[in-house]
Structure formats: structure tokens, C-alpha cells
């Protein structure tokens, strides 16, 4: 089976010259879930932003389901890779839940009827259809996260990348999120500091250290190796 994400020799430097990524090689199989662990500033989020073409690598290649990321196919890459950001408030920018979830399909140029159908489907998938008419600020943190995920699912992505999804969530919210995520068939990349949460969803973790992948192993091994 060919990998759905294939990254080779990825390097990235900020404008001031600091290297944030120093040669990343990474693979993800269809349906697989991998956790990205590592200290703050070790390059996890920077790496995730590359998968969606939001940051452009200094060198190296990224291929999503066999399609190599280029300026010309950014739109298609962004449709295939769904990025769920840490702060849901930044992601839910439309006035109502339904409009927000329908944003990506509408932006892709689908007609409103079809976009609405996709949005409803995604909302049902995350169990938030009953809040469709609400304004985002009326939602709890857990509900906001679910809606943010619905907004991504409406794009029908092949890969989900979740950046610190448990931030702001209470324990029931975290359990609910874990159940929701394990019910979704997509391949997942999970950036988190929450090891128990990662262990519920992923077998394998990669450990980021100063812009490099220091190890790839089962989660208990990684935790032991790096005293995490």
C-alpha cells in the first residue's frame, strides 16, 4: 500500500534565517493515526502547516496521496488535507455554525444546495446538527471543537491534522472527542502534549526535537525513551 502522506528532506527557515525544520522524513499510511510529540517550539506545528501548503518549504518534497505539492495544485492539496487549528475561535469565523461548516464547499465553488447538504452531513457526523443555527460564541469549547472538525469534514479530506485538539476541553469533552475521532475513517496526524489522549487514538508516535524527528516508535517506548 502506498503512503497517503510522504515527506522527504523537508527543511524550513524563517525570514530571519532560523531553521525551524532541519530535514524531516515522514510517512503516513491510509487509515493510520500518528501522534506528534515533542517540546514547544520543536517544529510540530510548523511541520503541520507545510502539509497544507500554508508554509512553503525551503527544500524537500511533500506528496499527498501521490500528488506532489506545487503552487499549481494548492487548492487540491488543501482539500485533501484538513487542518484543525488549536483555537477554534479562529477557525469558526462565520456568523452561524451552518454557514461556517459550509464555508469550504462554497469556497470550492459548489452550488449552495450541494454545499448545504455536505454541511448538514458533516454536522450530523460530529453530532452538532441541532446547533446549526447558533452563533459560534454560544457554544462550549467542546462544541466549538466539534463544529471546527465538521467544517473540515465538509471538505471531505483524506487526512486530518489536529493541532492540540484537547486544549480548553474538560475531561468529558476530551473523552467525547476521542470517541468522535476514532469513529472517523481518515488518516490522522495528532499534535498533542496529552499523552493519554494520544494513546487512545494512536499506536505510533514520532518525537520532534529541535526541528528533527528524533524517533518513531510506539507511544510507551517514546515516553520511556524521552522521559515524556
Amino acid at each position: 500500500m502506498s503512503p497517503i502522506v510522504q515527506v522527504r528532506g523537508l527543511r524550513y527557515a524563517y525570514e530571519d534565517g532560523t531553521e525551524a525544520l532541519k530535514g524531516i522524513d515522514f510517512e503516513l499510511q491510509p487509515g493510520e493515526t500518528v501522534a506528534l510529540l515533542g517540546a514547544n517550539g520543536s517544529g510540530k506545528t510548523t511541520f503541520a502547516l507545510h502539509l497544507n501548503g500554508l508554509l512553503r518549504a525551503t527544500s524537500g518534497t511533500i506528496a499527498i496521496d501521490g500528488l506532489e505539492l506545487r503552487e499549481s495544485n494548492l487548492k487540491e492539496i488543501r482539500r485533501r488535507v484538513g487542518l484543525v487549528f488549536q483555537d477554534s475561535d479562529n477557525q469558526l469565523f462565520m456568523p452561524t455554525v451552518l454557514e461556517d461548516v459550509a464555508f469550504a464547499p462554497l469556497a470550492a465553488g459548489i452550488n449552495s444546495t450541494a454545499a448545504l447538504a455536505k454541511a448538514w452531513l458533516a454536522l450530523e457526523q460530529v453530532g452538532m446538527a441541532h446547533k446549526a443555527g447558533k452563533a459560534p460564541w454560544h457554544l462550549s469549547a467542546g462544541e466549538k471543537k466539534r463544529v471546527a472538525i465538521a467544517g473540515i469534514l465538509a471538505e471531505e479530506p483524506k487526512i486530518l491534522v489536529l493541532d492540540e485538539p484537547t486544549t480548553f476541553l474538560d475531561p468529558p469533552g476530551q473523552r467525547g472527542l476521542a470517541e468522535l475521532l476514532s469513529s472517523l475513517p481518515q488518516a490522522k496526524i495528532l499534535i498533542t502534549h496529552d499523552v493519554p489522549f494520544a494513546a487512545r487514538l494512536a499506536e505510533v508516535a514520532v518525537f520532534f526535537q529541535e526541528g528533527r524527528i528524533a524517533a518513531k516508535d510506539t507511544i510507551p517506548t517514546i515516553v520511556r525513551q524521552f522521559d515524556w
Partner: peptide
């Protein structure tokens, strides 16, 4: 950050 989230979703 909002703009980034918008672009990520095809804006």
C-alpha cells in the same frame, strides 16, 4: 490566525 484558517479551507 483567522486568515490562515480561512486559506486552509480554500479562501
Amino acid at each position: 490566525a483567522i486568515h490562515r484558517a480561512m486559506v486552509a479551507r480554500g479562501f
